[in-house]
């Protein structure tokens, strides 16, 4: 499986993502420039974190219309795997590939800290290797991560199993106190109805190395990287 990491002007977590996929997991991975239209035969597209286009207008709003996004949208419509982290998640929501929107944090702060999240279920290509009920320690770094969707959308997402990660405390309990940004229902990560597009606000690529004293992000990368194996089951 070949990974492609899209770089927009203002992306700043692209090298972290390349390091984890290429060095930690020894997977073929390439950079894709936002002005290009060639996905270079990648099987999995990652939109990394950062501040694409300086967050002008709204986070992710301008990146959504970069030329490569037309290809990414077609790729996703044909079942291709797409993942967005932080600003990447915002871009996926702006592009309509994921439902909902990410609003300014309720407490007005830019939150930069380790938080805990847990997978809602393992029946997904983005959670399959996360142990049930385990609280993963993953850092967040965002000012606009308050997940919002209207009641009907949220209801349908819950029913379809599209809520993949929720903020929780270190014991895995989903509580209001464990919610760092005021997201509806402590939502930290969601997927589309078809299950091939996924976005999350926390940064698993910053938690996948012993050098950083945090490897919980690997449970998420294990799910992505061993995707082919899971799908063959």
């Amino acid at each position: 499986m070949k990974f492609g990491v899209v770089i927009f002007p203002g992306s700043n977590c692209d090298d972290d993502m390349l390091h984890v996929l290429g060095d930690t997991y020894s997977k073929p991975v390439t950079k894709l420039w936002h002005k290009d239209r060639d996905l270079q035969g990648c099987d999995f597209i990652v939109l990394p974190g950062g501040f694409s286009f300086g967050d002008y207008l709204r986070s992710g709003a301008l990146a959504r219309y970069s030329p490569i996004m037309e290809e990414v949208i077609d790729f996703a419509a044909n079942g291709g795997f797409v993942m967005g982290v932080c600003n990447g998640f915002q871009i996926l929501c702006e592009s309509g590939l994921l439902p909902g929107a990410l609003l300014r944090n309720e407490n007005r702060l830019f939150q930069c800290e380790n938080v805990h999240i847990k997978a809602e279920h393992a029946n997904s290509r983005f959670t399959a290797h996360v142990p049930a009920g385990k609280a993963l320690k993953i850092p967040i770094a965002h000012g606009e991560g308050r997940y919002h969707a209207d009641a009907a959308t949220l209801n349908a997402m819950n029913k379809n199993g599209q809520i993949l990660y929720r903020y929780c405390n270190e014991n895995g309990e989903v509580t209001p106190k464990a919610n760092p940004n005021g997201s509806l229902e402590n939502i930290a990560g969601v997927c589309n109805e078809a299950g091939n597009v996924f976005g999350m606000m926390p940064h698993p690529e910053r938690a996948a190395s012993e050098d950083l004293s945090n490897t919980d992000g690997r449970y998420i990368f294990d799910s992505l990287v061993y995707l082919g194996v899971i799908m063959e089951k």
């Binding site: 207008l57 709003a61 929107a101 919002h148 969707a149 209207d150």
Partner: peptide
């Protein structure tokens, strides 16, 4: 399409 996000 661009200037406003009607979800928010």
């Amino acid at each position: 399409k661009l200037l406003a996000n009607l979800i928010m």
